Structure formats: C-alpha cells, structure tokens
Amino acid sequence: MEKLKRFQVSQRVIWGSSIALAILASIPKLFDPFITIPDIIINSSITLMFSIFIWYYNIYSLPKFTSQRTNTSLFNWKLLLSVIMGILVMVILVVVHQELFQVSKMDAPIMFELRGVLINLIVYMFLHLLFQNYQTQQMGMELERTHALNLGAQYELLKQQVNPHFLFNSLNTLKSMVDMQDPQSSDFILKLSDFYRFTLESRKLDLIPLREELQILDSYVYLLKARFEDGFVLINEVDSKQYESVIPPFTLQLLIENCIKHNVVSLDKPLRIQLYTENDFLVVENKIQLKRGVLSTGVGLDNINQRFMHLMHAEIEIDKNETTFKVKIPMKYDYHNN
C-alpha cells in the first residue's frame, strides 16, 4: 500500500519568499537621500534572516502541534508563541547587527518589531493554508483507498458465490436420470464436472476472454437442457470476432440464472434467451414471462454491475419494455488480468 506523503514545503518557496520580503522592505530606503548602499544591505539582511528563521521555526513546530488532533482554528496559542519568539529573535538580530556593523542609519527598533510581526503573520497564515490543503488531500486519498479496499472485499465475496440451488437442482436431475437409466447420465456427470472445474479455475481470475466464458456457458446450458429439456432455448449469435474481448467470469451464467429465476420455463412456454453483440456490448435478451409470486429485488443485477464497476470501470445497461428484457454488458479488449 502506498505510504502517505510527509508534509513538506519547497526550499524555493522558503528562500524565494524570504528574499522577496527583504527586497520589499528595502524599497522605501531607496527614496532616502541620506542612506547608503551598505545600510540598505544590512537592513535587508535582518529581514531576510528573520523571514528564513520564521519559516523553519513554524515548519519544525508544526508536527508537534498537530501530532494529536489538528486545530482547525487559524488563530491559536501556537501563533501567539510564534509571535513572541519572533519578537525576541528580531531584537537579537537588530542588536547583533548594530554591534557588528555600526550602521549609520538604521530603522528604529519598533519598526523592525512591527515588520517582524507582519512577516510572522504572513508566513504563519500561508503555512497554515498549505497544511490544511495537505490534510484535505490526504483525507481524500485515504477515502479513495478505503473505498477501493471495500470494493475489493465485495468483489472477493462475489467471486466466491456459486449458487447452491443450482448444484442441488443438478444433483436432483442426475438422480432422476440415473433412476431412469438414462444413457446420457455419464455425459451429464462429465458436464457437471467440467462446469465446476471451470468454476475453480476461473475463480482466481478477475477477467477472462469471452471465448472461455462461452465454454463455461456451454457446460452450464447442457446441464439446464437436461433439466428443462425443450423448455429452455439459448440462441448464441455472438460474432466470433468478439471472442477475444474480456468480461468477469460467470457473468453470462449469472444472467441466465437470473432469467430462469424470474421467468416461467416449461415445455408449454419455453424460455428463449438470445445472446448477441451490439456495438461494444454483449446483449442477453429474453422474452418476459414472469413467474407468479416472484418479486424482483434487483440484487443479482446489482451484484453484476458492481463487478463491472470495480474491474472495468463501466456499468451494465438494462433495456426493458412490456415484452422483452435486455441486459447490455460492456466488453473490453485490452486483457491485463490481476
């Protein structure tokens, strides 16, 4: 997992702003006819050194004052401490410069103190805004990371689901075939074995080629045909050119299972499901012949949609009218399986 970036301020910002403040402080001196160039340089150096000190002092103290819970108030005791510390440092700088250089014309100490307080406020507020922006970015990154982990956990649960009702019905069908000594019993067992072998192999993958998904579907449909006979009809009209596109495994099985769950499947009223491609979508279409007493909660389609949003950053489309129900699945052609 990517570590959170430590809060930092660019050296260019620190030194650039300090030099700019020193230059601004020296501009009024240029209009004084009695001041000399050395006096301007010395006065400016005091502002420069003070600005740099204030920057590093506030940056150094920032983690200590925010290690527990950040105070969202702009003006607090940290600012008061910084101002007091700044006044003391400015006094020391002025006295040291006077003793070392014996400046002939120097601003009154009170002017330096006022300048120091102003610089302190500017640096503190600017640093405060930078840190608040940093915290906002980190919170956003943390929320995105948490959301991604949550989606990943949901998807892992979705990959584990193999409908136990399907296994129960398949075993009941197999028992009936064995009892009737149906010669296709052995083929049924092989197809059931193939289907669950595909289930175990594909469960480790996030995306599989459509070609492999159709192979899984072929075994699944064989098992359904053994159970419903001619009451279930699947018409596969998918263009072979689309076989190398990828989708999450068991998408088609879940969609067909959803159709069977909500619609009548019988010899008198066969359920016809069409599978075809339309632009960049794989379409699963069935005629609506709803079962009585079965209410749709939409959970199945929502689970499938969550898988597509997590893995392909796309959503399925549902097109429904009075007679037909269509689910359009987005297809992807760059195959990078994780």
Rank of each mutant, 00 (worst) to 15 (best):
K3Q: 11
V9Y: 04
V13P: 00
W15D: 00
G16E: 11
A25H: 01
S26M: 12
I27T: 14
L30F: 15
F31N: 08
T36L: 11
I37L: 15
I37V: 13
I37E: 09
I37Y: 10
D39V: 07
I42T: 02
S44G: 13
S44E: 06
I46A: 12
I46L: 14
T47F: 07
Y56V: 03
Y56E: 12
N58R: 04
I59K: 02
S61Q: 12
L62I: 07
L74F: 14
K78T: 12
L80F: 15
L81G: 15
G86Q: 03
L88G: 12
M90S: 13
I92H: 02
I92W: 08
V94N: 05
Q98S: 11
Q98F: 02
L100Q: 11
L100M: 11
S104T: 07
I110P: 00
F112Y: 15
L121T: 12
M125P: 00
F126W: 10
L127E: 03
L130E: 10
L130H: 05
L130R: 09
Q132E: 10
Q135D: 09
T136M: 11
Q137S: 05
L143A: 11
R145K: 13
E156G: 06
K159I: 03
Q160P: 00
Q161G: 01
N172K: 08
L174Y: 03
V178E: 06
P183L: 04
P183N: 09
S185W: 05
I189T: 08
K191M: 10
Y196D: 04
F198G: 01
T199A: 13
I208V: 14
E213W: 08
E229W: 07
L234Q: 06
E237V: 00
V238M: 07
S240C: 01
Q242V: 12
E244H: 10
I256Y: 02
N258M: 04
C259R: 00
K261D: 05
V265K: 03
L282C: 05
L290F: 12
R292C: 01
R292V: 04
S296T: 15
R307C: 13
I316Y: 03
I318M: 11
I318L: 15
K320L: 14
E322G: 08
K326S: 08
I329P: 00
P330D: 06
K332R: 14
D334M: 12
Y335C: 03
N337F: 02
